[in-house]
Nucleic acid binder design. Sequence first.
DNA 1: GTCTATACGATGATAGAC
DNA 2: GTCTATCATCGTATAGAC
Lengths: 185, 185
Amino acid sequence: MPRLTEARKELRRAQITEAAVRCFGRRGLERTSIADITAESGLSTGSIYAHYRNKAELIQATARATLVERAETLGRYADGDHPPGPDELLARMTAAIDPVAARFGVQIWGEATTDPVIGGIVVDMIDGVRAVVRDCVTAWLVKVEGRDPAEAGERAAPIAHRVMALYLAELLQAALRPNTEETTS
Amino acid sequence: MPRLTEARKELRRAQITEAAVRCFGRRGLERTSIADITAESGLSTGSIYAHYRNKAELIQATARATLVERAETLGRYADGDHPPGPDELLARMTAAIDPVAARFGVQIWGEATTDPVIGGIVVDMIDGVRAVVRDCVTAWLVKVEGRDPAEAGERAAPIAHRVMALYLAELLQAALRPNTEETTS
DNA sequence: GTCTATACGATGATAGAC
DNA sequence: GTCTATCATCGTATAGAC
C-alpha cells in the first residue's frame, strides 16, 4: 500500500520539477515565483509546499533531477562494445544538449557559487560525467586503439579532462544562444 | 571643467561596482540587496541611484567593468615578441584567475541566460578573449614554430577554441571552489 | 493532499532636506 | 551629489477548509 502512494508522490514531485525547469529556463532562478510554477504545473501553492519545504529545496531537487538525467543520457552514449573515440564521443554529447536544460544548468552553476548544497550537487555531477568519459576513453584506447589497459588508464585522464572542458563550453554556448521563447519582461 | 567632474563621477562609479562585485561574490546577484552594497561601499542608497537607474543597470555596468578588466589582463599575457605557446598561454590565463571575479563571472553566465543585455556583454567578452587567444597562437605559430603566416591563421582557430574551452572550465572550477569567506546565511 | 486566502517580511526605489 | 527616512510592491510561506 505504501508502494502505490509512494509512486504517486514521486510522480507529483516530477511534475513539479519539470514545470520548474521550464519556468527557470524562461525567467531564471530567482525571477520565477512560486506562482509561476503553479501556473506552469497546474497545481497550487499549497500542493507545492506539501512536497518541498521551501523554494531553495525545490531548486535543489530540480537541479538533482535534471543533472542525474543528463548524466544518464551521457552514460548511454559512452558504453557498448564499440566505444566511440574522444571526438565522436564529444560530438554525441554535444548533440544531446537540450537548450532549456542547458540554460537551467548554467543558472545552477551560478547558484552553486553561493549555495554550498547546490555546489556539492554540481561538483558531484561534473565528477560523475568526467568519470564516465574517462572510462569510455579508456575502453576506446584498449578496444579499438589496442593499447595496454594499464597504459590506457593513464592516458585517458587528460583526454577526458579536455573532452569535459569542450563539453562544458558547448553547454555554455547553447545556454547563451538567444532564447526563441520570448522572455516576457 | 567637465573634465574633472567627469573623472570624479567615473571614480564613484568604479567605487560602487567594485563594492558590488565583492557583494555578488559573497551572496549572489539577487540575494545581495542595495543595502548590502551601501554597507560595502560606504555610500548611501541615494548616491547609488544617482549613478545607476536601477539594480539591473548596476549589474550590467559591473559585468562590463569586470569583464573588460579581465580581457585586458589576458591581452597583456598574449603579446610581446616571444608569444607563449598554447599550453603556456593557458597556464598564465589560469594563474591570473581571481576567485571573487570568477564567482561573479559564472553568476553572470547564469544571468545572461535570461537577460539579453547581459547575454550580449558575455558573448562579446568571450568572443573578444577568443580573438586575443587566436592572435597569440597565430603569432606563436609564425614566430617560434616558423609556420607560414597564412597557414598559421588557419591552424590557430581550432587551437584557440580548445584553449578557450579549457580556460572557461578552469574559471568554472575556480568559481565552484568552496568560498573561504563564509556565506552569512 | 490539495485548494484559497492571507499575513508578513524584505527590498527596490523615491522624496525632499542639505 | 549625497544623505535619511519612507513607501509600495512583490513574493514566500502559512492557515485552515475541504
